[in-house]
Amino acid sequence: MRDKILRLMDDVFMLPEGSITEDSTMENTLEWDSLAHVLLMGELESRLGLSIPIEDAIEITDVKQLFERLKV
């Protein structure tokens, strides 16, 4: 599942496959801005069936937190 999420993130951020890793953060990934973040939450829900409440979603700023929140 972790890998699926990372590949989905590549796709949503329009990056070459393999760009997003467990160390990626909003800070070190130019394409991961607030807009891309919202789209990511939508795609996680519609494509992988993973949903995160809005209040929590806006607090997440890196892949580690995302995995932790999703318990994957």
Partner: peptide, 18 residues
Amino acid sequence: FCDSTWYMGKILHSGKAL
């Protein structure tokens, strides 16, 4: 349409729709 992105960031459309 996509409700979650709508409430989060006023994006009304799903990734596919966009």
